[in-house]
């Protein structure tokens, strides 16, 4: 395949997200402008201007009308996907790290970093149908975990919130009462900070990537460890194919040590693993920096990777990918 290279960002990529139809790709980077691209040919549709810091995360509503972004400028913003105009700004006391719309797009979970003495927190906000009625009130605020919460997503039927972060523990919270329901056990869990979390297409299981050079597959309801994928580099980004039983891990050594080592030693490929057999299927090379973000198109036929090098690479898989046998 010949990947499409998109050089819209001037700083390292942080997050990638496809909309539900798989025709739009949203990219966030440490420059201040989240960008939307057409996912088929990589043409830039627009940028969302208004943030004043690195943008860490985004999510798009199911009907692709509303975009939410979380930024280091201590705010999360709602945008009109079509026009790029900001609709609402949630202001916080500290940088926001992760955002996720609930099923039905009526709620959003936003995590904030520990900052200036305040600890990290998970905020649940109500998203109004009409942006004019939007208020900044938090429905629920969860506190407790030490360190950054790198990702928080909604569980099945919006009944739970799954969070993971620097303390390497995965937690499942009740989204109504805010009670901590489950915690991953120390022995089987990750040993270092969890960098990424991706749900399966049906939400029944999810994948976490960690700096301990492994990715783990968990059952969403019971939080039992299903699979472990071991690699030889820290995992910064994970995603799952919605079509085949494949998981994709992206990572690489720390950006700070990139220049001191051989480019081959950096291991900047996106690694494909068989979800069930936990065996490596192959690697897709190309980035010349660690991979920070990965996303699979909902149709399972293409995936995008974003790297520390500022490039988004859009890979439309060759036909023989779909017939790979281990």
């Amino acid at each position: 395949m010949r990947p499409i290279l998109m050089k819209g960002h001037e700083r390292p990529l942080t997050f990638l997200k496809y909309n539900r139809d798989g025709d739009l790709l949203f990219s966030c980077a440490k420059d201040h402008n989240p960008t939307v691209w057409f996912a088929d040919n990589g043409e830039r549709l627009g940028t969302y201007r208004g943030h004043n810091g690195a943008v860490w995360c985004c999510d798009v509503s199911r009907d692709s009308s509303l975009l939410i972004t979380g930024s280091a400028d201590q705010s999360a913003k709602l945008w009109s996907v079509q026009t790029g105009s900001p609709l609402f700004t949630f202001n916080f006391e500290s940088p926001t790290r992760s955002v996720d719309f609930s099923v039905g797009d009526k709620l959003a979970v936003i995590t904030t970093d520990p900052f200036m003495g305040s600890s990290s927190a998970i905020h649940v906000k109500r998203i109004a149908q009409d942006p004019n009625d939007q208020d900044a009130e938090s429905v629920l605020v969860l506190k407790g975990p030490q360190g950054r919460i790198n990702r928080a997503v909604w569980g099945p039927l919006n009944r739970t919130i799954i969070s993971a972060g620097e303390d390497s523990v995965i937690r499942i919270w009740d989204s109504e009462t805010g009670k901590l329901l489950k915690e991953s056990e120390k022995e089987i869990g990750h040993k270092k900070a969890i960098t990424s979390l991706a749900k399966s297409i049906d939400g029944s299981h999810f994948l976490t990537g960690s700096l301990d050079k492994s990715a783990k597959l968990w059952d969403t309801r019971t939080l039992t460890l299903l699979k472990t994928y071991a690699t030889e580099r820290p995992v910064n980004a994970v995603t799952m194919s919605p079509l085949l039983d494949h998981v994709v891990l992206g990572g690489g050594q720390d950006a700070s040590s990139v220049t001191t080592t051989d480019h081959r030693a950096g291991k900047f490929e996106a690694k494909f693993y068989d979800k069930i057999l936990q065996e490596e299927i192959g690697g897709v090379k190309g980035h010349f920096g660690p991979i920070n973000a990965l996303a699979f198109n909902p149709d399972g036929r293409s995936f995008a990777s974003g790297g520390e090098d500022g490039y988004v690479r859009l890979h439309h898989m060759d036909a023989d990918y779909f017939n790979i046998k281990l």
């Binding site: 395949m1 010949r2 990947p3 290279l5 050089k7 830039r44 690697g283 897709v284 090379k285 190309g286």
Partner: peptide
């Protein structure tokens, strides 16, 4: 937006 001149394979 550019198409990679290099053919990338799933290695």
């Amino acid at each position: 937006t550019m198409v990679s001149t290099e053919e990338i394979l799933l290695e």
